[in-house]
Structure formats: C-alpha cells, structure tokens
Amino acid sequence: MAGGPLDRREAVARLLAGRDTLLVVSGLGSPSYDVMAAGDHDNNYYLWAAMGSAMMVGLGLATAQPQKPVLVLTGDGEALMGFGALATIALRKPKNLTIAVLDNGHFGETGMQISHSGRGISLDRVAASCGFERTAEITDLAGVDSLRASLPRRDALTLATLKIRAENLPRVLPPRDGVHIKNRFRAALGFQPI
C-alpha cells in the first residue's frame, strides 16, 4: 500500500502545534512546504537541496543541542537516499532526536513515481532493525498527537512513518536564502554571525 490516509498539512501542523523549544529540520520538497505552511519560525531550518542530508543535519543539531528536542520532517524519498544515515544515527542514539518520515510511497516532487516504500519497504521497521529506541507507523491523528507528546520528553531516539495521501498540494515556499536561514536559526539560539 503506497502512502496512507493522513493529510500531510494537517498532520504536520498538528505535530508542530504548541511548539516551545523544538528545533525543526525539514527535507527538500514537500516536507519543507508543509513546515512552512504550518508557520515560519526562527527555529526552522529548511533544506532545499542536498537530498539525503536532512536526517544527518538533525543528528548534528541534536548532538550539539542535547537540551532541546529536535524534529526532522522529511519524505520517504529523501530518507531512502540517506538510507545509511539510519545506521549512523542508530549508533549515536541521541534521545532528543525524532525523525518523522512523511510517507506517501511516491516521489511526489518529480511526477509521483512509486518509491521503494510504496513498493513494500517500511522505513520504521528498518529503523527498528538498526536500533532506534522508539519506532511507529502512524495512520491517524491520534498517533500524530502521541508523537507530538513524546517530543519534549527527549527520552528515546525515535523514527515514525506518517502514512499520508499521495497528492501534490499548493506549494508554500519557505525562504530560499540558505545563508539567511542559517544565521537566523543560529541567532535564535544565541550564536552571532562570524
């Protein structure tokens, strides 16, 4: 079954609702649009390229900021390109890192070709095999609420696949100036530009 019943914008907005100290990294394409649609925030870092990197950016950030919860929101295609990162992250086990894979089973940005996850690969089961401490496949909003509630606890390295509908919604574009977003994010944490 490719994807699932969740509305991606509703699920992401719900996951980010009431955020406090949460730091967010979004993978290129629709996850970045979803995070932007939920409201621009100084604690968001949007990737626009470097496909496969979002989970590793989250690992570096979670390691440098262990007192804050870090959420990576990315797509199944992006996670598949960074497949090895699941092994690398599982060895490190930062308890403040949660990866939410928005899984529609398709490469949505490029014409909705069916992805590996749409053909049977379960990324949450891969993560569990690697040693992630908490994994889940989420198909309803109650599951999203439960995932959101776990974020501030910072008590387990987590990966959840959110099974979303395969559809291209109107794009909500985050800022593309990589230097600006980087400096804005760092400034919000108290770090000055060089």
């Binding site: 730091l23 990294v25 870092y45 470097a50 496969g52 990197s53 979002a54 989970m55 590793m56 950016v57 989250g58 690992l59 570096g60 950030l61 979670a62 390691t63 440098a64 900021q65 960074g82 090895g84 990162a85 092994a87 690398t88 060895l91 490190r92 980087k182 994010f185 760092r186 944490l189 108290g190 770090f191």
Partner: peptide, 22 residues
C-alpha cells in the same frame, strides 16, 4: 566521534552541529 556509512553524511552532520553552535 561519528563513524559514517558514506562520506556525504558528514557534510549534513557538521552543518547541523554548526546550526547548534559547534
């Protein structure tokens, strides 16, 4: 100390560490 499965993982990792001030 972070052992990688492939080198480009380190580029994302270090970008994240720098976002976090390190």
């Amino acid at each position: 100390s972070v052992v990688l499965t492939t080198e480009e993982e380190g580029i994302g990792y270090l970008a994240g560490a720098w976002l976090g001030g390190e």
